[in-house]
Design a binder for these strands. Structure first.
Length: 357
DNA sequence: AAGTCGGGGGC
DNA sequence: GCCCCAGACTT
């Protein structure tokens, strides 16, 4: 068990540092909880640099919670395309509808109620309410875990329940009554820019004098590593079947599981030896001919690695798209929920064609 | 407690 | 290759 110094011991130097060295983001300083909510969902398990590319376009497309609630899920997934963890988009959309229907369009200020929205866990509740309303609620994300683990020498792996409880307790204990909103932002900035996973810049850290990991030369050991799922390798084939008018067929994936309800080229599992035959079988379903191999697309998910052999075929002009299928033109891709792996495969299939444009 | 769920960037 | 990221949710 660790012994935390008084809250002000941490807060005062950290807030002073934040005044000087804090980062500026488009969601900082806002009082409307809706854009802050959007930013926090976008940033879940996502680097700020990546989230920044999606935040403003998303808000431009869905400027209010009412607009988001009125949109279709397909529109929201289209705006989320390439960002990953697509359940976040589904939950945000469902949450917006709940806010409009149940709370009159006002994002709840009650942590209990806010936490009932899908996709809004304890971290996100604290992040939204402390930033928008300066409510004194702690947050615990990867940055905060790293800072607290080092400053207070928390040795256990942070994915263990007991360690997580201790870290939440520390996050609450160091949280000042004065400016909890700024403080939460400050800890995350510190974790992102100074107290980094590797090569922390302790010389520029406002907490260096009270950091126990620094005192014991243990910054490199903390936080303790967590267990990781083993990567599964899968080999697939995908076929871009193109009609005379240039449109090609996309299929919607099942509504649950990996890339749920997102669009992809007709595909199947097949290793290198079986790829050609599997591609022909797919093309045959649309009376496709002129099968051409277009290359291999590698794509890594967190715990899965897909090797996709991409083919292109002519055909399908007499084939009517089923309920989970759609003949699409290149210009329509922006309207669809299209994961990055699909975009890569389509680009590979059309590479020769695209170079002519 | 472990697994699922994307994608990108650093080393 | 491995690690991590402004996590939440299911099993």
């Amino acid at each position: 068990m660790t012994c935390a110094p008084p809250a002000e011991t941490v807060a005062a130097p950290l807030l002073a540092w934040y005044e000087r060295s804090g980062r500026q983001f488009p969601w900082r300083g806002l009082r409307d909880p809706y854009p802050i909510w959007v930013s926090e969902v976008i940033l879940q398990q996502t680097r700020v640099e990546t989230g920044l590319r999606y935040f403003e376009p998303f808000l431009a497309r869905f400027p209010t919670v009412q607009v988001l609630a009125a949109a279709s899920e397909a529109e929201v997934l289209a705006a989320w395309s390439g960002l990953g963890f697509y359940r976040r988009a589904r939950n945000l959309h469902a949450g917006a509808r709940l806010v409009v229907e149940r709370f009159g369009g006002e994002v709840p200020r009650d942590p209990e109620l806010l936490g009932e929205l899908p996709g809004v866990g304890r971290y996100t509740v604290g992040a939204i309410l402390s930033a928008a309303f300066n409510q004194r609620l702690p947050i615990l994300d990867g940055n905060v875990i790293r800072v607290l683990s080092r400053v207070f020498l928390v040795e256990g792996a942070p994915d263990r329940a007991a360690v997580k409880r201790e870290l939440w307790g520390l996050a609450e204990a160091v949280l000042p009554h004065d400016r909890p909103g700024d403080f939460n932002q400050a800890v995350m900035d510190l974790g992102a820019t100074v107290c980094t996973p590797t090569g922390p810049r302790c010389g520029g850290c406002p907490l260096v004098d009270l950091c126990r990991a620094v005192a014991e030369g243990r910054t490199a050991d903390l936080p303790a590593p967590t267990k990781r799922a083993k990567v599964v390798f899968e080999q697939r084939v995908a076929v871009l079947v193109q009609r005379e008018d240039g449109r090609f067929l996309l299929r919607q994936r099942p509504p649950s599981g990996l890339l749920a309800s997102l669009w992809e080229l007709p595909a199947d599992e097949a290793d290198e030896d079986a790829a050609q035959q599997a591609a022909e079988d797919i093309a045959d379903g649309f009376a496709g001919g002129l099968l051409a191999a277009c290359g291999v697309v590698e794509h890594r998910f967190s715990h899965r690695h897909w090797t996709t052999r991409v083919f292109r075929a002519r055909g399908g002009d007499g084939y009517e798209a089923g309920p989970l299928e759609r003949w699409v033109a290149l210009a329509e891709l922006g309207e669809l929920g299209l994961p990055t792996v699909s975009r890569k495969a389509i680009e590979a299939a059309l590479a020769a064609q695209l170079r002519l444009i």
